[in-house]
Design a protein around this nucleic acid. Structure first.
Lengths: 213, 213
DNA sequence: CCTGTCAAGTGAAAAATTTCATAAAATTAC
DNA sequence: GTAATTTTATGAAATTTTTCACTTGACAGG
């Protein structure tokens, strides 16, 4: 099997989103063209992306919505639920704890940690906030592979090291510090202000001809 | 001037982050190698990215930290402050209102909107929550160009259309619905569960040889 | 002031990614 | 049942992006 480019993986998730939405709408079949249009892509690209995983389309007809969804979920490891640990229950952290989208998409935040004594013991959405001293113990015991980090940037490195040692394989990092681990660990750095900053480049240079659009 | 690839823009912001951090640490000079290492990139790529905007490095020495920071900020439109409107003061929205990172990076959330009568009139961090009926009026009057959208996905399209009509040029969209506008408008779709989903692909396929790492 | 080393800048080469062209299968229209 | 149309699949071409090789300027040491 050929190597799957990272850009393809990112698109696959978006395809899955669209496929599931169409599934809900009762569409029995979907064509690459439809998927592509919904995301502003070239249909050839969609087919090529899907073809990495074998051929599950029908010529002249398209893809069976349900089967495509199932296959994509399987490819992405989304055919089962994942347990997630959340570290750092500040403003952002508690909003993430309450964010219904994770559960909807198969991710169960099963524990939350903080250092602040005021927060420890409190409960948000069924989840009791635990002391960060217990983090390794609980994460190991529960066999948690994914963690969400919403802590100050100063603590990011130390805490993520501890998580990795406790068995976590993937981290979604909201702290504005770039974290890196080598294979097989994965970090996804989500820097909220960074997104705004990439917007301003285009706003600022809007109209000039040196733009990639 | 040559067209700037989107991937370059994304890296430039990260360079700026590192440069500012080093500036704070008192480093007078920075080399492409140092910048590259901090982000796990090839130094040639860093030089090429910077060279799009002219030559501001010194051979044998590197880049003057301060000047590089200034230049990058100017390129990115970050040499001034930006006013931002926040729409949707739910869990995520109010966390974003309280998120200090935006202000730190030059973005002032100056107004917030919601539909819920319970929320309208309340105040979070100096910002009074206004009715969404007043959105267009205030956004136009204040000449706001950037909006953060943290509303349910069902409302995303309608609200973003209204924002665009009111003069907004860039949207940071947290609603899990893919929004698209054509040039010169920009949308950055930030789908939180989507990030987790891209992690699971790698966790699931970990160890298999078909991976891009 | 010469020599060696370092690092930016630049054009060419390589690699990766996307688009295109074509073939083949399925469906629809006649 | 045949022709036309639709749409996937796949290998080739084009494009984009990254890496490499080389040149040049700057500085340090002798």
């Amino acid at each position: 099997m050929k190597r799957i480019p990272e850009v393809t993986v990112e698109r696959l998730i978006k395809y899955l989103r669209f496929v599931e939405e169409m599934e809900k709408d009762g569409m029995r079949n979907l064509t690459a063209k439809q998927i592509a249009e919904s995301l502003g892509l070239n249909p050839h690209l969609v087919r090529k992306d899907l073809a990495y995983f074998g051929q599950f389309g029908k010529r002249g007809k398209g893809y069976e919505t349900e089967k495509l969804g199932e296959t994509l979920r399987k490819i992405m490891g989304l055919d089962k639920r994942w347990k997630v640990a959340l570290v750092g229950v500040g403003n952002l952290g508690s909003a993430l704890l309450r964010y219904p989208g994770f559960k909807e998409r198969g991710f169960d935040v099963v524990c939350a940690f903080d250092t602040s004594p005021q927060k420890i013991g409190r409960q948000i959405e069924d989840i009791k906030i635990e002391s960060m001293d217990k983090m390794e113990e609980i994460v190991s015991k529960e066999n948690i592979k994914i963690a969400i980090l919403s802590i100050p940037k100063e603590a990011a490195e130390e805490v993520s090291d501890r998580l990795v040692k406790a068995g976590v394989m993937g981290i979604l990092n909201f702290a504005p510090r770039y974290l890196q681990y080598s294979y097989p660990f994965r970090v996804l750095n989500v820097d909220l202000s960074l997104y705004l900053e990439s917007l301003t480049f285009y706003l600022e240079n809007d109209g000039k001809k040196n733009l990639s659009m």
